[in-house]
Write a protein that binds this DNA or RNA. Sequence first.
RNA 1: GGGCGUUUAGCUCAGCGGGAGAGCACUGCCUUCACACGGCAGGGGUCACUGGUUCAAUCCCAGUAACGCCCA
Length: 886
Amino acid sequence: MTKELAKGYEPHDVEKRWYGEWESKGYFRAAATSDKKPYSIVIPPPNVTGALHMGHALNNTLQDILCRWKRMQGYNVLWMPGTDHAGIATQNVVERQLAAEGKDRHDLGREDFIERVWKWKAESGGQIIGQLKRLGASCDWERERFTMDEGLSKAVRTVFVKLYEDGLIYRDNRLINWCPRCHTALSDIEVEHEDHKGHLWHIRYPVAGEPGRFVTVATTRPETMLGDTAVAVHPEDERYTDLIGKSVVLPLIGREIPIIADEYVEREFGTGVVKITPAHDFNDFEVGLRHGLDKINVLDESGVINAAGHQYEGMDRFAARTRIVAELEEAGLLEKIDEHPMSVGGCYRCKTVVEPYLSLQWYVKVAPLAERALDAVKTGKTRILPKQWENTYYDWMENIRDWCISRQIWWGHRIPAWFCDHCGEVNVAMDAPTKCTKCGSDELRQETDVLDTWFSSALWPFSTMGWPEQTEELKTFYPTACLVTGFDILFFWVARMMMMGLHFMDEVPFTDVYIHALVRDAHGHKMSKSKGNVIDPLTVIDQYGTDAFRFTLAAFAAQGRDIKLAEERIAGYRNFCNKVWNAARFTLMNLEGFDPDTVSYETLEYSQGDKWILHRLNETARIVDETLTGYRYNESAMALYQFTWSEFCDWYLELSKQDIYNGSPERKQATRYVLWYTLENLLRLLHPFMPFITEEIWQALPGTKATPTIMQAPYPVACDSRSFPQDAADMERIMAVIGGIRNIRGEMEVPPSKQIAVILSCDSEDTRRLMKHNESAIISLARVSDLAIGHGIEKPEDASIQVAGDVQIYVPLKGLVDVAAEEERLLKEIGKIEKEIEMFSKKLESPAFVDRAPAEIVAKERQKLADVTAKKLVLEESLEKIKKLR
RNA sequence: GGGCGUUUAGCUCAGCGGGAGAGCACUGCCUUCACACGGCAGGGGUCACUGGUUCAAUCCCAGUAACGCCCA
């Protein structure tokens, strides 16, 4: 039954082989209907242009851990995969290709361009799917969706029409954020603000009809003065009271504009006089509305000055700035230039400086939607974890502004609205109407704008399950169990899914939102191509294997903290994989001819060590269950790591050797059973974290398997019948004795090849029996040739001593070491103990502590002090004796 | 300007109201029949600073500083 395993773990072949097997056998498939309890997660759809980066790797590893875990727990698990059409990003990719051919999208025209994008997608889009598979992602690939596939497009149109009919979608001509390179509107959150060193230009505007009199305005954007339609002062600013109602003459242009008073003006800013440019500044736009000012747009869609800019027409906005400043200076109208730090908005796709731009766009009225989304979190229908993010969510939801959803690009869901050229009516419908619903004209033009990419993503939890059709999938899997994501898309995506889910499904889209960290480089910097500090997950996988990488991510995924990915840690977990592998090799080597099917757990007689490892295994299962339930991945990973390495390998495997090699047939059989049992359970516990190596080993284990894959084997649960706290505690006393002997060996530099004689003097009969009962373990793990156990034994004069609980350990030194070394060792040991004694004594001497601390705490401290004092006494006596030997 | 987070061993990070932990790195011994990607033993920390609460603070509270992030 058992197979030979290679000496070291070689991940690549194993990964490829098992992933292919799992996928082809349909183990990732979810049933639309099932008796099992459902558990569903929708993947945050990566951009179809995307390549796997650290963020994806973390995000998807965490989801896969949950899915594999829940699947093993017997749930009907759906992990819904797919990709996002990523409007602007994808259009940019194809436009860059065209540019390389010396063309732009207008050379192709809309239809051909879109066709070209589809072609690009078919050929090179979605490479990330293959990369997710290398990560081991157990998505139900047969259900893979795309935000622009037919079903999802229908969902998008349905939602748009319904929201329009509900009065929650409207058109308006106002200022939006405009990217002069992408030639499209952006929503507020698609603008990334960055601090820049800017300037504050002080410009003199001559007062009309009062030659020689000026007001000085301060501005960070002098070129927009071309569109000024007023200057404003604070109504209570005494410096300018007499000017209110008068006019100034706009320099360079000569247009006369009014001086108005508005409380928006900060008296302390600049000179207290500001220019008002309603078409190019968000605040000025509001002022303009209050005062009925004209809005003069001086830019075209590329950020070039238009005809309204008179002599500056055709100049780029930044060139115009330079020219205007120069000409103002020439005219003696430039008073001064101050340094001025300012925040500049950039397009989140291409980093171009965005322009507040006056245009007619479509909006979603979000206030009513936001209210429900807010309420759902406040009432706990959806939990956001870690909890601190709830406040961020509340803040944003409470201050939310209407969502600009139209984009002037071609790649995306075209807005289902048709304008009647005859009567101007806007017809919004699922499908192209043949005539105007108002006037019956057939002169209809479809809106050319497409929807914000995030509009379709907002529907993802239900559109992927077939909505608006009432499918079995929707019934079974909506709402989903958990959404795993980074905080960077909390607003872009999570908040909007909440709003749309509640509005259209009347239920939250997920009950938990788990927000994970951002992956940074080892120094805490954001990874970016320009900084050259990007670590490519695929390179890591090539180098260390998927399992090691996944385990690293899980171990780093502490809540509420960014991950600084240190490569040494990955190497450390690669070593861990190798350790698991070799533990399995050892176990299999010793299971030759062993058939677990013929052995029953109940009939075997277990040793102290057996019970200890069974107990620890049980505890580990309990901890993993608890921590994973709370999304405390790092704690699960640590518990598994410690158990595997420090307990199973370092102690149990070593303990088992003497029983396997020298034990009675019964002892040998029980040991083989416990080895098999522990390893088999451990593999299942580890599987969600390390899917490949666990499957590879599990398949090699002897015994009949109830399932064809470890993926479907039940996840271990802690049970009281396999909990042996007393035996485990006793075992730990044995381990302490072994530790004591090893300490002497180590400190005295006795090589492992040298066997030593040891005398154990126990303070009680109980302890003596325990030691005696486990003497073979002590002999074998401490490499003892001669072990004497008794109580009240006098310490031989030339022996080295160590104390473990109520056991004194004597190691006769003759021929091993010189007394000086022992003296030094004892002094060191006593030094350590003295510190402890001091601490406990101090505490117990304080009446306040003894009187007010809980009795059990005081008793505990007393016991500790007694133990430590006794130990010190023994060590001191032996130090005296050693000194005499000199 | 508003909000949030972080500060613990040389490095990367856990932890947390009652004797400071892990991995890597470091020192010593060891090619012990699973593993040198290993074993055993060991060194190393006024848990950022200042106050407060408490019998007891690395942990709770307040403030300070440095760094980072988000929003305006």
